[in-house]
Amino acid sequence: MVEHDALTATREAYDAIAPTYAELFRDSLRDSPLDRAMLGAFAEAVRTGGGGQVADLGCGPGHVTAYLGELGLTAFGVDASPAMIELAREAWPGLRFDVGSMTALDIADGALSGVLSRWSVIHTPPEELPAVLAEFHRVMAPGGHLLLGFWASDDPAHPTRVFDHAVAPAYCWAPDHLAAMLRESGLPEVARMTRAPQPTDRRQFPEVHLLTQKP
């Protein structure tokens, strides 16, 4: 299957670079005030809705999961890479981190008040993304929020664009197209933040955060 091949390739690639990746991104939020602002808005939305468990899907080495905890959320991380999960458990032994796939989460229906997916769908082939979004919807409780971060395509005529990511083949998405897919999955958009590429960015694509809510 295409999805299986992509998942296996991505897992193996991130396993191979896990220590380097963890070191590179450990302090990434410190220099990203807009990212912190969106995470803060997400955390406030979850708290206002009564709190509850939040999953950081594609958590990598766990630094953002830990930050969600600092914002007052009961957060745990899930990643397909066992090496990443091992590093996360070592760095934050008081938090929960599980190996898992976004296409088949070991999470009960409606168990989560929030889902965070920061750049975790970029390696998902376009034909497989609806199934991932459906899985996000399944595990979220009514009223729960999803914050989805991704690189945006700068060509509105093409809903997706493949590019040569340093780790594995990756995709960027036309924001309106992805927002429509989320809406069709039962997760309508609440807010959006777009960050223009900066001269120092390795990827010269806009960054987009979409905040959605399950009715």
Rank of each mutant, 00 (worst) to 15 (best):
V2C: 10
V2K: 09
D5K: 14
A6F: 10
L7E: 06
T8I: 08
A9S: 14
A13C: 12
A13H: 04
D15Y: 14
A18S: 13
T20N: 03
Y21H: 10
F25H: 12
R26T: 11
R26G: 03
D27K: 12
S28P: 01
D31G: 01
L34R: 10
R36Y: 03
R36A: 06
A37S: 08
L39A: 03
G40A: 02
G40Q: 00
A43W: 03
E44P: 02
A45T: 09
A45R: 10
V46Y: 04
V46N: 04
G51T: 15
G52E: 04
Q53S: 13
V54L: 07
A55I: 07
L57M: 02
G60S: 07
T65F: 08
A66C: 12
E70N: 01
E70I: 01
L71M: 08
F76T: 02
V78F: 00
D79T: 13
D79V: 10
P82N: 07
P82L: 09
A83E: 06
A83H: 04
A83I: 02
A83D: 06
L87E: 09
R89F: 02
R89G: 07
R89P: 03
P93N: 08
F97H: 08
D98I: 12
V99Y: 05
T103V: 11
A104P: 00
G110F: 07
A111M: 08
S113Y: 02
S113F: 05
G114R: 01
V115A: 11
R118T: 12
R118M: 05
S120E: 14
H123Q: 15
T124F: 04
E127I: 11
L129I: 11
P130R: 07
A131D: 14
A131C: 03
E135V: 08
E135H: 05
F136W: 05
H137I: 10
R138M: 10
M140K: 12
P142N: 04
L147T: 05
L147K: 04
L148V: 15
G149M: 09
W151T: 02
A152L: 06
A152D: 09
S153T: 14
A157V: 10
P159K: 11
H165V: 00
A168R: 04
Y171E: 01
H177A: 14
H177R: 05
R183K: 11
L187W: 04
P188G: 12
E189S: 15
V190H: 04
R192T: 13
R192F: 14
P197A: 01
D201T: 07
R202P: 00
R203V: 07
Q204E: 12
V208I: 11
V208K: 02
V208E: 01
L210F: 04
Q213C: 07
